[in-house]
């Protein structure tokens, strides 16, 4: 496969995952804002932070309002991570790697783009927001479904998966980075309703409220949430799950080689050193420091993948 094609696949699926994650963050923010009016602005601030775009937002806006935050996250082309920008980037990359995609995957991607372009052509009024966000997430799910159902399990698929899981791990880590303080033991001791809202916000941001309640029961606390999002391999958005998938797919790509490649070694290192202990070890290390460390390692892993597989010259 061409290095350029691997690059295009990687970014196509990173962008699709990002579009979906950003849509989910907006949904969560809107939900909290509607049910906890007193939290409005601070919640949007942390949503922008989780989306990794707070600084850019502040640089281009006078004040932070709900409407401005939603518009920025949803459809502002100046924000490269907005839902619209991400879907456009995904589709642009899909055009670039058109020959590596099945007809079904290409059409689903193109349809997602056409629908986003139409629905997000104008400011979305609040009444339409749930429909628009739902539609965006369904469109990206359709691409994922077509990918699962029609693509050969070869290196094309592996690069698609690498893009997906790097972005997903990064997204989960950023959510934790922004909200880590509500998961600290000192916070859980307070047990105020505020904390519960924050927990709910975290779980909604990763579409895992129901799953968590089912697995951990009513008495669960902050430690359990941290465990769930960081170490639980059953949870498809946890760091441990995503990093193992990255290791697996890098392993498939290296099959037939004498020894694992540098990126594969990096993924194995992250998993063994940081994601194979119990949650107490994480808290002993320092939750915030831990998350910062993992974010840094993920960025290094991404750069290593680009080098290993000759994405650029």
């Amino acid at each position: 496969m061409l290095g350029k094609t691997a690059n295009g696949l990687y970014w196509m699926y990173r962008s699709l995952e990002r579009a979906e994650n950003t849509a989910r963050l907006i949904e969560t923010g809107q939900r909290i804002a509607l049910t906890r009016l007193e939290l409005g602005e601070s919640e949007w601030r942390s949503v922008l932070q989780s989306a990794g775009t707070l600084d850019q937002f502040d640089a281009t806006h006078e004040e932070l309002t709900k409407d401005a935050a939603i518009d920025w996250l949803l459809r502002d082309r100046a924000n490269p991570s907005s839902v619209l920008s991400s879907i456009e980037t995904a589709r642009q990359n899909a055009r670039l790697v058109r020959t590596a995609l099945t007809h079904e995957v290409w059409e689903a991607t193109n349809a997602a783009y056409m629908s986003a372009r139409d629905m997000l052509a104008r400011k979305v009024v609040e009444r339409d927001l749930p429909n628009v966000l739902g539609s965006m997430r369904r469109r990206s799910s359709l691409v994922r479904g077509m990918t699962h159902g029609t693509m050969l399990r070869n290196d094309i698929y592996d690069f698609a998966r690498l893009g997906t899981f790097i972005e997903r791990a990064d997204n989960t880590a950023r959510i934790l980075d922004v909200k880590y303080y509500v998961l600290l033991p000192s916070a859980s001791a307070v047990g105020s309703s505020l904390d519960n809202v924050q927990w709910e916000s975290i779980l909604r941001s990763v579409s895992a409220r129901g799953g968590f309640r089912m697995e951990y029961g009513a008495g669960a606390g902050t430690r359990d949430i941290a465990h769930f999002l960081i170490l639980d391999r059953r949870m498809p958005r946890s760091l441990a799950f995503c990093v193992r998938k990255l290791g697996d797919n890098l392993g498939y790509l290296n099959k037939g080689q004498m020894r694992p490649g540098p990126a594969q070694l990096k993924a194995q290192h992250i998993e063994r050193t940081y994601l194979s202990h119990d949650i107490d070890a994480v808290f002993d290390y320092g939750l915030h420091e831990f998350i910062q460390k993992v974010l840094k390692l993920l960025a290094e892993l991404s750069a290593q993948i680009e080098t290993d597989f000759r994405f650029y010259e």
């Binding site: 496969m1 061409l2 290095g3 350029k4 055009r95 020959t99 790509l253 597989f309 000759r310 010259e313």
Partner: peptide, 30 residues
């Protein structure tokens, strides 16, 4: 261009994917 490459099952390359290596024109693969 993409359509024909896809239908033939061959790579679609741009100039910067190619260089001359050992007297042949070669494409940069993974």
């Amino acid at each position: 261009h993409a359509f024909l490459a896809d239908q033939m099952g061959v790579e679609l390359v741009e100039g910067h994917d190619l260089r001359v290596v050992d007297g042949r024109v070669a494409m940069r693969t993974t």
